[in-house]
Design a protein around this nucleic acid. Sequence first.
DNA 1: CGCCTTTGACCTGCGC
DNA 2: GCGCAGGTCAAAGGCG
Length: 469
Amino acid sequence: MQTKNQKIEASAVEAELRRVVEENRRLRGILEELTRSYGALYQQLLLVTQGQHHQHRLHPADLMISRPSLAHTHLTSTAASQYSASTRLLLEARASSSAVAQPRAVEDEVVSGAGDGAGVVEASPSLSNGGNNDNDAAAADGKRKTSPPRESGEQAAASSELPGRKARVSVRARSEAPMISDGCQWRKYGQKMAKGNPCPRAYYRCTMAVACPVRKQVQRCAEDKTILVTTYEGHHNHPLPPAATTMANTTSAAAAMLLSGPATSRDGAAALLGHPAAALFHHSSSSIPYASTMATLSASAPFPTITLDLTQQAPGGLLPHGLHRPPGGMHPVVAAPAAAMPFPAPSPLAMFLPQRAPTVPTGLPVAPRQQQQQQSVMETVTAAIAADPNFTTALAAAISSVMAGAAHQAQQPTPRASNIIGIPGDEANGGSAGAATAGPSPTTTAAGAHAASGGSPRFATQSCTTSTT
DNA sequence: CGCCTTTGACCTGCGC
DNA sequence: GCGCAGGTCAAAGGCG
């Protein structure tokens, strides 16, 4: 009797699973189509822009502003409309289960460290939020002088994290707006003129939770005032809205890999290359010189900072092969999060330069490249959200995460719920070094193109450099 | 009235 | 010890 019920239940689950996989496949197709359309549109836009640019000195970024809405519309009308209840359920399940069923990713632990650098978040930034961070929050409220004692929970992370280091994640994006919308609520608490920059630096504090320790600095680049540099610091102690989650995860992972590395840049770079999250930034940078154009490490004291430069154009379309799933054999615990993480950092430009990919010999076999490109679609879509405040795009990111997870699941004989979804940065943990923002992805795209064409010499040539303290 | 921004003052760390 | 720069505080004022 019981066995019969179990069989029925099993078949039901199996059917549901099949349905979800099918749905994921459909969504993936939509995204691929979207990407193709986008690429074509972008090509046209480039032509038009190039023509107009000289005549009207029109900044490409200005033109790009309209593109996101295009993409949004598409995503909203197609992908979103097919974003079925089951998918949503999976997403929710993932969020709720990750904190329990899934072992906390090292990144999260480390990033927590980043947060408590500000005297704040401890090692348990769970989705349940706030409660367990009250102490930290209180500490944070005060004058960030106290560095809370390490909790036993930090163990692994603590071992790799360098004490006293406070990681920051800086996002560079072109934006006309005074501040990039990233899904979080911020309150300005100060403004200061920074040395060497005519533009004032604004200080913001997250106000989504009473004592959220996350802060961010917003400043325009001295060399190119169209570039907005947003620096995040700390770790949210509350659940994040979908629109903020992706970037939060991004900065979280970035901070994680930064913190887990040595203080000196050289060693740091080497260590980062070995970090699970590092693959997202520094994938085989030796073999593919363009792969790492988006991430810049700066381990200079006192705050190691990783900069996600969304203003650059990666030559040759930047196939984010660094985002490809690690070859089989990688330890699941490490591979899963890294592979499924909706990590926008290195790939945003790929989304906007897909058409160029074929022209650049990467030396990779065709099949893997196709696979990677397909994967890049997922990643780049999430990248887009990272750069866009629109909730719809955040939704798209969630979808892409699900799809990535589904792909991952396909490789695993006995998928667990969390694996099916492929929870990346464990957004359930509310974890993140900050909600990242990043301007408009499209703007970013334009920015990238612009930068590459001489918009920002300094950054156009800056490529995954590391600085030594 | 509550929330937010502004802005000058204050605190702290660091280099000389 | 001093000066500088970065970062934060908090009072004052604006706005819906």
